[in-house]
Computed example of a mutant assay.
Amino acid sequence: MFLSLVLSGEADDTEDDSYIRRLSTSICQDLVYGLIKGKCLTPKHLGLGFAVHQATRSKRLVNLIHSAGHCASYYQLLRVDTALAQHTIEKYRINDNTIIPSNLTKNQFFQFAADNIDIIEETLDGTGTFHATQMVVHQRGISDKHHHDIPIAKDTSFKIPEEFNKIDPAPFHRGRTSPVLNKELNHEWFNPDVKQAELANIKDIIWILTKLHDPEHNVP
């Protein structure tokens, strides 16, 4: 409230209230981050740090903004990334070796979208290429689960489980398998009806002859 009054100069809400609120929230987070000397990461300092690194991939730029007190350091971002990866691996093992986002809400509609990722796929011998599949899940609304309970990792070391690099054999049967039916099949349903076939053939011939003698195209 105090910062909003200082920034806007008015006690009442104005048309630019959303901008003032956003600016005052940003300054408040800078104050909190500075007072506790970066020991607790605010949403702004994490979000801005990840956004800058995602857009530029520059460690130097992230640390430069961090030195001005506006985002977390590059090392802090790596620790958070490591903690999220470790949390994902734990959930992977709990969910029967399946990665399920922990912030999905049960009994609520969601959609999946998948696409392949091919990098350096045109090489002389086919080595050194990268092929993977990326999948995202979208769910409307605000999730009832958050990651506040995930502790930040003490370091950036992380070991990928061996099962991640293994390819499970495809479950297939050699030769042709017979279909499994719940009820007995009535083969008479698939036998041709000779009379109906002859009648259909006669109708086709009549339509063709009528069409040939219809210069004004009245016959559909």
Rank of each mutant, 00 (worst) to 15 (best):
P43I: 08
K44I: 01
K44Q: 12
H45W: 09
L46A: 00
L46W: 00
L48T: 04
G49T: 00
F50H: 01
F50A: 06
A51H: 15
A51G: 05
V52A: 12
V52S: 05
V52M: 06
V52I: 14
H53E: 12
H53Y: 09
Q54W: 10
Q54R: 13
R57F: 07
R57Y: 09
K59A: 04
K59R: 15
K59V: 05
R60Q: 10
L61T: 15
V62H: 00
L64A: 14
I65N: 03
H66Q: 02
A68H: 08
G69P: 04
H70W: 02
C71N: 00
C71I: 00
Y74R: 04
Y74A: 14
Q76P: 03
Q76C: 03
L78R: 03
L78V: 01
L78F: 04
R79H: 01
R79Y: 09
R79W: 02
D81T: 11
T82Q: 10
A83R: 01
A83Q: 02
A83K: 01
H87M: 08
H87A: 08
T88C: 08
T88G: 08
T88R: 14
I89G: 02
E90R: 07
R93W: 07
I94S: 08
N97S: 13
T98A: 03
I99V: 13
I100R: 09
I100S: 03
P101G: 14
S102G: 13
L104H: 04
T105P: 10
N107W: 04
Q108D: 03
Q108V: 11
F109E: 06
F109T: 14
Q111E: 13
A114N: 09
A114Q: 04
A114P: 10
N116F: 07
N116C: 11
D118P: 04
I119C: 15
I120D: 13
I120F: 10
I120E: 12
E121Q: 09
E122Y: 12
E122M: 08
E122K: 15
T123L: 14
L124Y: 11
L124I: 13
L124K: 13
D125H: 04
D125N: 10
G126V: 07
G126N: 09
F130N: 05
H131G: 06
